[in-house]
Design a protein around this nucleic acid. Sequence first.
DNA 1: CGCTAATGTGACGATTTCGTGACACCCGGC
DNA 2: GCCGGGTGTCACGAAATCGTCACATTAGCG
Lengths: 229, 229
Amino acid sequence: MTAKTVLIVDDEASIREMIAVALEMADYRVLEADNAQAAHAMVVDDQPDLLLLDWMMPGTSGIELARRLKRDTATAELPIILLTAKSEEDNKIQGLEAGADDYITKPFSPRELVARLKAVLRRATPTGVEETVEIDGLRLDPVSHRVSANGEALDVGPTEYRLLQFFMTHQERAYTRSQLLDQVWGGNVYVEERTVDVHIRRLRKALGDDHQHLIQTVRGTGYRFSTKE
Amino acid sequence: MTAKTVLIVDDEASIREMIAVALEMADYRVLEADNAQAAHAMVVDDQPDLLLLDWMMPGTSGIELARRLKRDTATAELPIILLTAKSEEDNKIQGLEAGADDYITKPFSPRELVARLKAVLRRATPTGVEETVEIDGLRLDPVSHRVSANGEALDVGPTEYRLLQFFMTHQERAYTRSQLLDQVWGGNVYVEERTVDVHIRRLRKALGDDHQHLIQTVRGTGYRFSTKE
DNA sequence: CGCTAATGTGACGATTTCGTGACACCCGGC
DNA sequence: GCCGGGTGTCACGAAATCGTCACATTAGCG
């Protein structure tokens, strides 16, 4: 799973720091901004997956930023969690009406924060379209998460599964190891290129004699999935 | 799926309006009533699928209406979500005892409302549609709320029951822990993902050696219910 | 036919994921 | 208050998976 990015917007550096530490321990990427203008720019540029927004800030208030983001279709889907002090509880109505997805009152435990953040992300992330692919008797079904050859189930590991899925939906084209690492492993991972070879090997083995010819090595370049010779 | 009908009961027109807009955007049919008497009539006449009920209303209170509806077998199955102000939190117990299926404190975001409404509708036993499921000698009877294997009764807790019911009505599909939390626990809970594992474990144990193979773990993803393999 | 670079392959330790038992907590019933 | 079932969380170990290496094999070239 690729790490989600969270943008923390608060004018107090100490609070940002505390939250950042908690989130980083929970494996989130963290961005910070100390005012609404900077935050808005970062939302546009860095496209975080979630916004942690302080209610009270000098200049443009948090709620104003929330309202603005929700009005713009490009950013309307961005989940927002508002942070407020206990005494400001009355403002909750405005906050949620402005489009916030959740609302946390200070003080809060890091753990609570992470939990609610997870919940919001879970609700916000739409499940992609999944179609089963079948090629030459080889079938991959994303719904049941199974791979079968001529009806017989094959045992493939998670990485081999993703690799095969990528190949089956991108046939007839050669990919370099680097491209495969990007597409299958997901962008920013540091892994040896030769690791791809090993997983290709494992996938071929799993496919068995009947189908391993589908994965062809393109010498000097990388690999290709193809039914043709 | 035919659109579900939701009856909103609140004496403040502005609140009804806000909710109505949110629900219509989410593809629900919406009915409105501003007092308990009218609401009762509409429940009988229009048979909505769910009731959104304000706690505080002039005349017959929301809770009184809820109690009344739950007493009548004709309307007892109707899911009810209570709306209350934060300060009335203490009354939560009474609300749930009166038969409400969920409980939302104002203010709330439209998104939250829709999420919990979905969850309630999902969990709610849609009157009449409940059929007993039997798979591979394993039988789940929603009417008596019992599970049996080859005629022998099994002892499963409430959560395990819902989990099993969900699985039996959604075979051959791999679900992530997140999805299971959404579907079985309801989208608004903040629970660790690993908790799913524990309940899977409890369910497997309850199913016994004969049937625990039906619940399969999909490494790196989650779980699946299937007779195959 | 040798040589070299690229790829195949088996093994291995490190890491991740999952299963499992224990435990603390909540809440309703007694 | 005490008890007991139900629930969520944790810690630990087992198992699967991953990334890397060393070495074998192969393809392409002169």
